[in-house]
Design a protein around this nucleic acid. Structure first.
Length: 226
DNA sequence: CCAGACGTTGTT
DNA sequence: GTCTGG
DNA sequence: CCAGACGTTGTT
DNA sequence: GTCTGG
């Protein structure tokens, strides 16, 4: 699963890397510990040349309560076309979730060891996502997104049984291409190359979303205390 | 037909 | 145990 | 994902 | 809105 990630790199690097602009009304700042319900940077098929901040946790358009989004922070790639909450978004509203690392908790007996996973070159990458525009009962529109998951690759299988779908750079544009069918898109929902990724233990200060600071990204040497 | 769910993960 | 909030 | 609350009434 | 269960 993927319930926490980071997007720390400077705006200038992000703009160059994804070939986008950042509209004036969107204020980005480094996120070491991005968590559900927060507004986080995505690139959508609606505006593929702009970064916007959407709320993490997809709120289906029929929802009566914003809290429904709390449960929809991930979507299984294998069943997107079947699920009422996702199928329409899969066809029409896809997005790139911008990240430069993500976190998984490795279960060791009763303990949970937080691990940070990045690319070996530590560059930013795009996670496949879906988005929605929800009208709240008070008439306010809220744009939200979910992160698509898949089976773990070799590296991740030692940590967890799911991982986010990281899109290879060459198909990032295709993911936002409105002319592709779900059949073609299904082929993109694969585990990323293990050889290009690395994982290491980090401080359990990552556990609290309130700790959105550099302490949560540093590797920890000593293994499995307590 | 209407009512009620609509999701994932991990654990039991 | 389960839900909410971040 | 994890942390932290989980309740009501009335009053400040 | 759309699907599932009764």
């Amino acid at each position: 699963m993927c319930g926490r990630f980071s997007i720390i790199v400077e705006e200038e690097i992000l703009k160059k890397r994804f070939g986008v602009i950042i509209p004036e009304q969107e204020t980005l700042f480094p996120r070491f510990n991005a968590a559900p319900t927060q507004n986080l940077p995505v690139i959508t098929n609606l505006n593929p040349s702009e970064i916007h901040l959407f709320r993490w946790g997809l709120i289906p358009f029929w929802a009566k309560d914003i809290k429904i989004g709390n449960k929809l922070i991930n979507a299984r790639g294998e069943t997107l076309t079947e699920k009422p909450s996702f199928k329409n978004a899969y066809t029409n509203r896809r997005c790139l979730v911008l990240a430069d690392g993500f976190y998984e908790w490795k279960r060791v007996g009763k303990n949970k060891i937080p691990m940070r996973i990045t690319l070996k070159n530590e560059e930013p990458f795009a996670i496949a996502g879906l988005w929605e525009n929800w009208k709240s009962p008070s008439g306010e529109f809220i744009k939200s997104f979910t992160v698509i998951t898949t089976e773990p690759n070799e590296l991740m299988s030692g940590i967890h049984n799911r991982m986010p779908v990281i899109l290879p750079r060459e198909i990032e544009k295709d993911w936002l291409d409105n002319s592709l069918t779900t059949n073609e898109l299904n082929g993109f929902l694969q585990p990323f190359q293990s050889e290009k990724m690395k994982a290491f233990q980090v401080s359990s200060s990552i556990n609290s979303p309130a700790n959105d600071n550099p302490s949560v990204i540093f590797p920890i040497q000593n293994e499995l205390k307590l």
